[in-house]
Measured scan of single mutants.
Amino acid sequence: MTEYKLVVVGAGGVGKSALTIQLIQNHFVDEYDPTIEDSYRKQVVIDGETCLLDILDTAGQEEYSAMRDQYMRTGEGFLCVFAINNTKSFEDIHHYREQIKRVKDSEDVPMVLVGNKCDLPSRTVDTKQAQDLARSYGIPFIETSAKTRQGVDDAFYTLVREIRKHKEKMSKDGKKKKKKSKTKCVIM
């Protein structure tokens, strides 16, 4: 069974824990209790493949930012979460993405942009803004509501699919490099 290491990042209060708990335990946590770091595991079937999701729910508070490099190193894919009623959390996505790329030393890291709290009427981040940002990053965008469960499975499952595509691409690139290195030079 394939294991996928997913990391949920975003500013404090955007609903990272609520999304994760909704996926794992099928219930909505409405009281806000700032996370330092929590880890969850769940076995699911995605596109006919049974897999184990190892999900790291991270601290959004700035005082825990020193811990970010460590979990970013171990993560295979990242859910970059903002709240649709919090423009600052949307603007912060850029910083999370840049930090992930720096730590992973790669421009090509599996990510999904997630606009959470889409059940709320007080939207300050337009869907088109988020779609445009995701398009500019070359990553999928999904709106979710941890409260109603809308888009929750889709967000995590899409990230797994992005990781699969990335692994497939990397193995193809690896095979191309191996083929090239088999060419021999004969000096007579």
Rank of each mutant, 00 (worst) to 15 (best):
Y4F: 12
Y4C: 10
K5C: 02
V7N: 14
V7D: 08
V8Q: 02
V8P: 02
V14A: 12
V14I: 12
K16N: 03
K16F: 14
S17H: 00
L19N: 15
I24D: 01
I24H: 08
Q25H: 07
V29A: 05
D30W: 06
Y32H: 06
P34F: 02
I36F: 11
I36H: 02
E37R: 00
R41N: 03
R41C: 05
Q43H: 07
V44C: 12
V45D: 13
V45L: 10
V45N: 14
I46C: 11
I46M: 12
I46L: 08
I46H: 09
T50L: 13
I55W: 01
T58Y: 01
A59C: 06
A59N: 04
Q61W: 03
D69F: 02
M72R: 03
T74G: 13
T74V: 08
G77Q: 02
A83K: 11
I84M: 14
I84Q: 15
I84L: 13
N85I: 11
N86F: 02
E91D: 08
H94A: 14
E98R: 14
R102Q: 11
R102D: 12
R102V: 04
D105E: 08
D105A: 06
E107M: 12
V109T: 13
P110L: 03
P110K: 02
M111L: 07
M111V: 09
V112M: 13
V114P: 00
G115P: 05
L120G: 14
L120P: 15
L120W: 10
S122A: 08
S122C: 07
R123C: 10
T124V: 07
V125D: 08
D126F: 05
T127D: 10
K128N: 06
S136M: 14
Y137H: 08
Y137K: 06
P140L: 02
F141W: 02
R149V: 06
Q150H: 03
G151Y: 15
G151S: 14
V152H: 11
V152C: 07
D153C: 06
Y157F: 10
L159E: 02
V160D: 02
R161P: 01
E162A: 07
E162M: 09
K165D: 04
K165C: 04
K167Q: 05
K169W: 03
D173Q: 03
G174M: 04
K176I: 11
K177R: 06
K178W: 04
K180L: 03
K182F: 14
V186S: 14
V186F: 13
I187Q: 15
